[in-house]
C-alpha cells in the first residue's frame, strides 16, 4: 500500500467524520427544545466539523500554501463563530429576541 493511498484513506475518514458533525449539528438545531441548547449544539458542530473536513482536504492534497490558506480560513471561522454566538446569546438573555420590535 503506497503512501498516497494511506493518505487518501485517512482523508476520506476525516471528511466523513466532519460531515457527521455537520449532520449532528443540524439535527440538534432542528430537534432541541430551547434557544440556548440549540446554540450549544450549533457552535460545537460547525467548528469541529469544518476543522475535520479541512484536515481531510489537507491530507488529500498536501501542499503547504493550500494548507496555510485553509488554516487561516478555519481560524477566521472560529473567531467569527465564537463572537457571533456570544452576541446572539447576550441579546437573547436580555429578552430582545422576540419578533415584536
Amino acid at each position: 500500500m503506497s503512501t498516497e493511498a494511506i493518505l487518501h484513506a485517512l482523508a476520506a475518514v476525516c471528511i466523513v467524520l466532519g460531515t457527521t458533525f455537520f449532520l449532528a449539528g443540524t439535527i440538534g438545531l432542528l430537534r432541541l427544545p430551547d434557544l440556548f441548547s440549540r446554540l450549544h449544539a450549533l457552535t460545537k458542530a460547525d467548528n469541529l466539523g469544518l476543522g475535520l473536513v479541512m484536515l481531510g482536504l489537507i491530507l488529500y492534497d498536501p501542499n503547504p500554501f493550500y494548507a496555510v490558506k485553509l488554516l487561516i480560513l478555519w481560524v477566521l471561522v472560529m473567531v467569527s463563530g465564537a463572537t457571533g454566538a456570544h452576541l446572539i446569546a447576550k441579546r437573547a438573555l436580555r429578552g430582545d429576541g422576540e419578533d415584536a420590535p
Partner: peptide, 15 residues
C-alpha cells in the same frame, strides 16, 4: 425568534 433564524443562517454559512 429572530435569534433562531440568525443561528440557522450561521450554520448555513459554515456548511
Amino acid at each position: 425568534t429572530p435569534a433562531d433564524r440568525m443561528m440557522a443562517a450561521q450554520l448555513l454559512g459554515t456548511s
